[in-house]
């Protein structure tokens, strides 16, 4: 028996918005410790890693490890039926071929359930190597989304260049060039407004706008985003999901541009 009840059901709706453009389908690995999802995007240039810890759920029960292959377009249709203030429960029997989503309104006057067929996914096993990053940049997630959107008008790629002074985002194309520099903030009223750079050595890498823009669909999940870069390894774009976990996107740098 698997059952996970999330009082802040809106978080699950936001998670779905953050992954559904990148992935058509994915396996949710449910274990005693929580729910894990790892999958390459449809074109195998980026990887999504989602971690929801059991402690973040109001109620969590997982008697046996369970792999639930879900069609994300179907799951998204179902989650659209939940209101933002609904409590969402996911449940499945051991070895079941369906998963049930139950939506409870806050005052319990409306309870809906939706059963969805699971799919058998033949997914490759992925390993995420432990990496020390040369640069770790924290910035407001809305600012990062804005930068990706603005620079996408200039070209297909964004160059991210990190030095101890700050971080520079650049793009170039037919209409011209664009540079956005963010300095480390000295003092801020709110921590979520801060730009922080932790740099061991300067790094400059180029990434596809298309994917960075898809990652920014996670912006509603967190006020801050963390970018980790090292030469010759994928960029990590991480959004914390309150006290429950995180979503990380890994993106290959452009090679041979």
């Amino acid at each position: 028996m698997f059952e996970a009840r999330l009082v802040q059901g809106a978080l699950l709706k936001k998670v779905m918005e953050a992954i559904k453009e990148l992935l058509n389908e994915a396996s949710f690995d449910c274990a005693h410790s929580g729910i894990l999802l790892q999958a390459m995007d449809n074109s195998h240039v980026s990887l999504v890693s989602l971690n929801l810890r059991r402690e973040g759920f109001d109620k969590y029960r997982c008697d046996r490890n369970l792999v639930m292959g879900m069609n994300l377009s179907s799951m998204s249709k179902i989650l659209k039926c939940a209101s933002n203030d609904d409590i969402i429960t996911m449940k499945a029997q051991d070895n079941a071929d369906t998963v049930t989503f139950v939506f409870e309104s806050p005052k319990q006057e409306k309870i809906s359930d939706y059963e969805m067929k699971l799919t058998n996914l033949d997914q490759d096993h992925l390993g995420i190597p432990e990496t020390e990053y040369s640069c770790v940049i924290k910035l407001p997630s809305a600012e990062f989304a804005r930068i990706c959107r603005d620079l996408s008008q200039f070209g297909e790629s964004i160059v991210i260049s990190c030095t101890k002074e700050g971080v520079k985002f650049s793009a170039a194309g037919d209409i011209g060039t664009a540079n956005i520099k963010l300095a480390q903030t000295a003092t801020v009223d709110k921590e979520e407004d801060a730009v922080m750079v932790d740099m061991q050595e300067p790094v400059t890498l180029t990434f596809a706008c298309k994917y960075l823009n898809m990652f920014t669909k996670a912006t509603p999940l967190s006020p801050q985003v963390c970018l980790s870069m090292s030469p010759d390894v994928p960029l990590v774009v991480e959004y914390k999901i309150e006290d429950i976990g995180h979503i990380r996107y890994y993106l290959a740098p452009r090679i041979g541009d």
């Binding site: 195998h44 490759d124 992925l126 995420i128 994928p234 290959a252 041979g256």
Partner: peptide, 14 residues
């Protein structure tokens, strides 16, 4: 593409 190959090597052979 080279990027696909890069990701395959990085994540499939940790």
């Amino acid at each position: 593409s080279k990027e696909q190959q890069f990701m395959k090597v990085y994540f499939y052979n940790p």
